[in-house]
Design a protein around this nucleic acid. Structure first.
Length: 289
DNA sequence: AGTTGCACCTGGCTGC
DNA sequence: TGCAGCCAGGTGCAAC
């Protein structure tokens, strides 16, 4: 599930419990996730206070009071659950999947936060904050799509000369960071652009901003903002940090709708599903060119 | 350098 | 009901 809107939704759900709280104890129920946990991970976290909980692309970043940052990535199936301090405030009786509760943060004040991740593609790392910009994970990361920088001019510059299809270019985290399979499909549909079109073709040769680039930049921002406002999409049984379901999935226009009618006004096309670099792409061949 | 394909894992759904 | 096969939101790395 977790593309930028879902990670941002998780951040907002965790912030009230984590920001300002101290880690009293951290339970690790296995040696690692996608990567091994850092050496002495639990003991390095114990006693640290979380000064702020931020997000960069699909990464959650907890700023700690010793100058370190706890980096958390949800992979494909990671989720957090907050258990309130007061009994009954928000209790998950649901024990199904508890086998995949890999990390429990016990916080000052009595609340706890549990990280669950069946596929274990997620990971947690600990790095000094001032070294983050040069860290392997962040050094080559692209522009934040909801920030001020992303507009038609930048998109045209990023994609200029690229032969790769738009789908691949938009998924490339070193260009724009935070889009995933769902929102790339959705943004391209809104922009009326084919996922197969060469990325370079939305830039003009003279370097001026093309109408296509400006429209695509606008559609990327729009779909992400709408999804964040709706609390993410939460496919399958993935839940927000507070346990409720996100509603954006009801607003998918193409994703998961292969064979169905295109919802663009006046379009008579059908949504197709194709494979691009091994992953499903949903699009309408009639109105996306 | 730019791409593609595969690997990493488990679970859920479909169809026989 | 059982089981095989396919699919899934992400990323990193090896191979062309």
């Amino acid at each position: 599930m977790p593309e930028l809107p879902e990670v941002e939704t998780v951040r907002r759900g965790l912030e009230p419990a984590m920001a300002g709280a101290r880690f009293e104890k951290v339970e690790l129920r296995r040696a690692g996730l996608r990567f091994p946990f850092p050496d002495n991970f639990a003991s390095r976290l114990a006693g640290r206070r979380v000064e702020a909980l931020g997000r960069r692309a699909k990464y959650l970043l907890a700023d700690l009071d010793d100058g370190a940052a706890l980096i958390m990535h949800l992979g494909m199936s990671g989720s957090f659950r907050v258990n309130g301090a007061a009994p009954g405030v928000f209790h998950h009786a649901r024990s199904k999947g508890a086998a995949h509760d890999h990390v429990v943060f016990h916080l000052s004040g009595g609340a706890s936060v549990t990280y669950n991740d069946p596929r274990r593609f997620g990971f947690m790392l600990l790095e000094r904050r001032e070294a983050l910009a040069e860290h392997k994970l962040f050094r080559d990361i692209g522009v934040e799509p909801l920030g001020n920088e992303l507009d038609g001019a930048l998109l045209a510059r990023l994609f200029a000369g690229k032969a790769a299809p738009l789908k691949a270019a938009l998924l490339d985290q070193s260009l724009i960071a935070g889009l995933g399979n769902i929102y790339v499909c959705e943004a391209l549909h809104r922009a009326g652009l084919s996922p197969r079109r060469a990325a370079g073709t939305i830039a003009r040769k003279d370097g001026a901003v093309s109408a296509r680039a400006a429209l695509l930049a606008r559609c990327i921002r729009e779909v992400l903002e709408e999804a964040v406002a709706a609390g993410g999409s939460s496919l399958r049984d993935h839940r927000q940090a507070d346990g409720s379901l996100g509603y954006f999935q009801h607003n998918f226009r193409v994703y998961g709708r292969g064979g169905g009618p295109c919802v663009s006004p006046g379009c008579e096309g059908l949504v197709q599903r194709i494979a691009q670099s091994g992953r499903s792409t949903f699009f309408c061949g009639a109105c996306q060119r």
